[in-house]
Amino acid sequence: MASGVILEVENLRVDIPVAAGMLHPVRGIGFSVSRGETLCIVGESGCGKSLTSLAIMGLLPKTAQRTADRMDFLGRDIRHLGEREMARQRGGSMSMIFQEPMTSLNPSYTIGNQLAEVHLRHVGQNRTAARDRAVFLLEKVGISAAASRLGQYPHQLSGGQRQRVMIAMALMCGPELIIADEPTTALDVTIQAQILHLLAELQREFQMGMILITHDLGIVARVADKVQVMYAGKTVEEGPCETVFDAPMHPYTQGLLRCIPIPGLTRRGERLGSVPGIVPNLVGTLSGCMFRNRCDHARDACANMRDEPTHMGDGHAYTCLRAPEEILGERQAAGTP
């Protein structure tokens, strides 16, 4: 707590029994989030990033099994909290923003009702206080004429406004930690920029910790303090945002960065880089580096490697056997540090 750490997770695993055996979508994830810090978890579909967030919130499907060596939220072990205790945390001191603002709001209640409801359940003050807070936050998230909006239903709002309402709702009880799972994927680019801008501003103002889950490297680069790249249920690379983007060590991170066209850097019509192949099946016993079947640098040894991250100082770490030779070698050959 002294260092302002809000959430600390070590070796989080999620296992789901399926017809073909045991599925391991999350296989030992660890991270920490401090006050006022943004952690971005980035990865492609099926890498386990969404399940990680649900595991923290205690919202996993019934059949899923969660284990962790450590899950401390505000200095308190939340691994064995009961459903009622967790429900008190959710929406109270940790809250979540989902991707689809249309389905996350109940269409048959006014937004005023839904905002007040959160406040009454967690803070338990009177209705006037809840209403005042709702108006205050709606104004904060940039909704004009907030007081008159309280009586509106979700379908009367545009997609961007709905996501703003969702953010206001997440802030109702003054949370310490916000988990945002692809909060802007369903929105237009201009609205996306506005919402991200808003989130960053609010986070600074209220000194919250934030975990942002996304597949968009552009978003990560712009908002993250720390980055965690996930692949096949594991962290393959993590570190401070600038370091990871400037000097990515893991072949997967490098591949992802080469895949996106960057205005000003990639020439028109130029061939983009790609990561061939597909995500491996995570059912059954898994060993070695799971990226090896898509990796240009893979050798036989990669099939047996231990999952020990290599630390490079200032929190930058990666899990790859070949990176020291291949990538550092290339970089030295190219004359860049």
């Binding site: 201009t190 978003i219 600038e242 960065l257 205005p263």
Partner: peptide, 19 residues
Amino acid sequence: GSVLTPDPRLGVPDTHLGT
């Protein structure tokens, strides 16, 4: 202005658009 290039040195742009 809303295009988010993966440049960690830039923040989220303010588009100055109404909501």
